[in-house]
Design a protein around this nucleic acid. Sequence first.
DNA 1: GCCTATGATGAAAGCGCTTTCATTTATAGC
DNA 2: GCTATAAATGAAAGCGCTTTCATCATAGGC
Lengths: 333, 333
Amino acid sequence: MATIYEVSKLAGVSLATVSRVINKTAPVREATREKVEAAMKELGYRPNSVAQSLASNRSNSIGILVPELGGPFYAELLSRIENEFRRVGKHVIIAAGHSDEELERESIEFLRSRNCDALILHVEAVSDDYLRGLADAGCAFVLMNRLVEQLADRCINLDNLLGGYLATKHLLELGHRAIAYVSGPMWKRDAQERYQGHQRALQEFGVPFDSNLVFEGDYQETGGVKALQYFRSLDKPFTALVCANDEMASGAITTAHDLGMDLPSQLSVVGFDNVNFAHYTYPKLTTIDYPLGEIGHMAAQWVLKNVYQQPIKDIRAVFAPQLVIRDSTYRIN
Amino acid sequence: MATIYEVSKLAGVSLATVSRVINKTAPVREATREKVEAAMKELGYRPNSVAQSLASNRSNSIGILVPELGGPFYAELLSRIENEFRRVGKHVIIAAGHSDEELERESIEFLRSRNCDALILHVEAVSDDYLRGLADAGCAFVLMNRLVEQLADRCINLDNLLGGYLATKHLLELGHRAIAYVSGPMWKRDAQERYQGHQRALQEFGVPFDSNLVFEGDYQETGGVKALQYFRSLDKPFTALVCANDEMASGAITTAHDLGMDLPSQLSVVGFDNVNFAHYTYPKLTTIDYPLGEIGHMAAQWVLKNVYQQPIKDIRAVFAPQLVIRDSTYRIN
DNA sequence: GCCTATGATGAAAGCGCTTTCATTTATAGC
DNA sequence: GCTATAAATGAAAGCGCTTTCATCATAGGC
């Protein structure tokens, strides 16, 4: 691989000039630039990005930390972010935190040791204090799906409460009154918020809240399975089920089929997230769309603006989820 | 951030010695090592990976190129590979080629310009010649799901023909004789091979091949939709459908429902790949498992062995797919 | 035509580390 | 106790680039 030195020699100019035509960091006379470009082409020269990083103290890499790589949930997010940065010649380094405090910490350290210019974090287990400490240490990062006091200017959020509200409200409007709820793990903020939204909708419609009709799930398919089994064992009639995510909704639907229930006539189900398999279920799942793509996009914009000083207009901090009506909900009277 | 120089000063040793304790690249006296380690801890020192890369001509990063980031298909693969490398302190840079020749090329160049130590490629559009040229240029890479002559020692493959064979054989054993086939785009090697497997199974069971019962799909959901519509328009009875991937199978199943068919009693469907949503369909999809995780694992091993000189025993070049029987196939008489 | 403001260019000092080579120190053999 | 050998350590030269600072050329203003 040719080096910048060889290019400068062939073009008959100094290193500095070559660097300038590469980076457009200072004006270079037309004729000179052409000579340099010709030399680069002739040698098949490509700048060594590692050397560039060392000299400029910029790695042009952005670290991304998500809970899981494996699931269907984050693929779109990553895809969107990768695209965004790729277009401007930067690349992403991806790590998975598995919702584990130790692992999330370790991953952040790993990403930092890789000299990432910025981090985009979707963390759940790590404490607010830790994040504030990170910010104080001068680490440039933006948070997705989390709101931390004093760090609000670097949080890109979904209005989970609104989402929970919309899900339950939809069922209420279809005439349902006995609505069971499967929450996520309650130590997760989004699980709490979605649950609050559910309660608010009930309250608004004057439906008394029945704590028996709530089950704390695990955001996994099995959570939905167990929830439905539990509710059925209760011997308490219910006509609808809202699940705090699509995985659990899918588990519930499968179980309902296994129990010989007819969907959606005997049970309406609403999910949350609108993951890619939501329309593979039968009946197709009515759910709350989580605009992950847009959130990823906005996180990328944040980095472009705050770290790479690109002229980005406004950063939107809170996104509103939307109800997506498919076939799993049914009007009763 | 402290530098190695400050550590060496605090510990009262030379840079070289500090470097040695960091990299364990030469023996250091116990007492010296402790002094250095204490100094590192005191300063909160972490080596600058960019400087390490520049000096050692190793970036400790591996480039991965897959067709899509967004779909469900590659998530597991990436997850597995990331894990593998993470454990040994290396990281992955991920890019998407979108099955487009230009884009695949460009992505490879991008990854190369990032000084990746090795590339793991899942490419479809780029030519064999291009890949041979890449190898000649000294680029270290391993290919997944592709077999290129003269590059066989760096190919990790799935026996697609066997997979296609198993899918159709399963239906034949259930008594089906009129079996329709939805292929992938025929310019893709794996699509051809799967199709060949289908034909071989028919032949083995003495079932005459009917070219009307073949439809070239696009590996997308809509391919399955169109295929089923086409076959129904044919006015030719068929009791089973094998789809060259799960997306198309899902499309076909949905369409079958829409047409009021009862599954699996009126139509058996087999997919291919066993992607994560395969058991969300209704009925749950019988399919051919593509051991993507293992293939990713093996690709990582290849890199560890051939690029990082780690003592890996044997690299397996060809993986065998397996039939996963669920509920979408039905025995007839 | 002379001076100054500006535009182009070059020289050279790093960026933080690895690695070779030379040197010093410890170990062992007699 | 002295040399031969091996084990530890240090000095210093890069790795390929960016960036400051100084220098030189050009062009206008009077």
